[in-house]
Write a protein that binds this DNA or RNA. Sequence first.
DNA 1: CCTACCGATCGGTAGG
DNA 2: CCTACCGATCGGTAGG
Lengths: 191, 191
Amino acid sequence: MELKEKQKKILDVAVELFKEKGYMGSSVRDLATKLNIKAASLYAHIRSKEEILEWICFGIAHEFFAQLQEIKNTNLPPKEKLNLFIDKHLSVVLNNRDVTHIYSNEWKHLDGRLPEFVEMRKNYQLEVEQLLLEIYKAENWELKSPTFTTRFILHTLNNSYFWFKRNTESSVDIKEEIRDKILFGLLGNQK
Amino acid sequence: MELKEKQKKILDVAVELFKEKGYMGSSVRDLATKLNIKAASLYAHIRSKEEILEWICFGIAHEFFAQLQEIKNTNLPPKEKLNLFIDKHLSVVLNNRDVTHIYSNEWKHLDGRLPEFVEMRKNYQLEVEQLLLEIYKAENWELKSPTFTTRFILHTLNNSYFWFKRNTESSVDIKEEIRDKILFGLLGNQK
DNA sequence: CCTACCGATCGGTAGG
DNA sequence: CCTACCGATCGGTAGG
């Protein structure tokens, strides 16, 4: 799924558009106008509107997977694996805020490749759950509801781009604050 | 904004539909079919498709406000105010999962009453922030980023319906687990 | 509640 | 990359 230069340009503009109006609220004519071409001309570069959504959803899913695999392949102490996972996942999210938003909210419109997407995401969730189980076991922590906890952490990470205004705080500070909230909550680090 | 019986029925069916296909992905014909009437007949009960979205978004927003006002009017100790706020807000969310989902994800399509909605939500956010400030001050806790923290708590509460499968766990257990995660995070309550 | 219908817009194709 | 155009569907109205 290698994209040509023009396709990358279309992807970038589509991300901006879908973020603003939603996938179903964005027409191919809107997209073409933003690219200063006619709607019909788009089809020299894309097979369908849905294909663009596929690029977005599967592209970022692939990044999440790659990042997780890297962590699984290290021999870090469990606690640091957890920290690194949060850090890496957050980096992907914060470097791709609009894409993550579309991935989280528009995947249901994938249609043809929807089953493939749903399974891919389920697998990712299961792998994260395994990582958590491994960490909790090694640290002798209690993990009451692994599935619940996994969903909590992934959802919180994926929606964290929402908690601050863009460009007002440095990325390092943001990541620290988010990790802090996920690990210790509102009160866990209060004396 | 008192709804008649038929309008309530339309609202209920629309919530189900919008949750499944999204607001822009749902046509008035889809909605009419689900109600076993013709699309044109809907307009005896609604002014527009958008009006239904207004019922959904402003209706639940009103519930959030009412619940917050109740808490502000009590004389509970600060710490219990925080617990009660989480509990009450969660009750509204869990009793209105699909509505909360639409409120969170489809508000941008409100159009005519969009500015009113955005301001309403900003005010709610500010009131919650004030409540947090009051609580943190009384308890002598440190609150580094009030706005960030407020967004964290509201987003986490509003998305919590996502963390578990429907009807698999009792509502009491769910609320406890969610409050636990928000207050203490993944590790805050581990010894 | 229905039938009949409106103009506008949708994603996409043909052919150059 | 364009013009020209397709059938389907959109939200909504008129009139009963």
